[in-house]
């Protein structure tokens, strides 16, 4: 496998790897590093890549594990820095400002979920993988994934409702 073939193979899911890394890690830079790391690991495996029937799932699994390892090694020492790179550059300022604010809320709420649930939300609600694929990536069965996902979504809803009706009730 030469470089071009590899790039072509990797390109469709490179951004997904990046977004999953960004979901779990705290800054864009860290996520970029993680993406790079995963890609280089894949590249080093290139002779065996044909043995895997789903390279994308493999990459996502590697990303998940890599990020969780990173978090484990850092959790002891480092302070978490919350990134807010989700700013919107569209017009209709007044409306958008309010929206951006609530989008940030969602982000904060999701960041407070346990990592396992964050991964599931990322894979399902953002990347829209089928349950079958998620099962391969996180190595859980589909029922367990559905249950966990339902729990995560309900938690998000609960926190959103609280935030939405803050001061009313």
């Amino acid at each position: 496998m030469n470089q071009n073939v590899f790039i072509e193979l990797v390109n469709p899911f490179k951004d997904k790897v990046f977004r999953l890394a960004k979901r779990l890690l705290t800054s864009t830079e860290e996520a970029e590093d993680a993406t790079q790391e995963v890609m280089v690991k894949l590249w080093n495996k290139k002779e065996n890549l044909n043995d895997y029937n789903n390279v994308e799932a493999l990459a996502m699994t590697m990303t998940k594990n890599y990020c969780l390892d990173q978090l484990k090694s850092k959790r002891a020492g480092n302070l978490q820095i919350v990134h807010n790179n989700f700013t919107d550059r569209e017009p209709q300022l007044d409306r958008k400002l309010e929206d951006a604010d609530s989008l940030e809320w969602v982000e904060k709420i999701i960041n407070q979920l346990p990592e396992q649930l964050q991964v599931l939300i990322q894979l399902r609600d953002v990347e829209q993988y089928e349950f079958e694929e998620i099962a391969k990536i996180v190595n859980m069965n589909e029922t367990a994934i559905r249950v966990a996902l339902s729990r995560a979504r309900k938690k998000i809803r609960e926190s959103m409702v609280n935030a939405h009706s803050y001061g009313i009730r």
């Binding site: 951004d15 790897v17 990046f18 977004r19 790179n85 919107d88 969602v106 809803r157 959103m160």
Partner: peptide, 15 residues
Amino acid sequence: KPIFGYFSQVKQQKS
């Protein structure tokens, strides 16, 4: 609304 808006927006991010 923000929940689903957020999901769509996050998906736009690119490395």
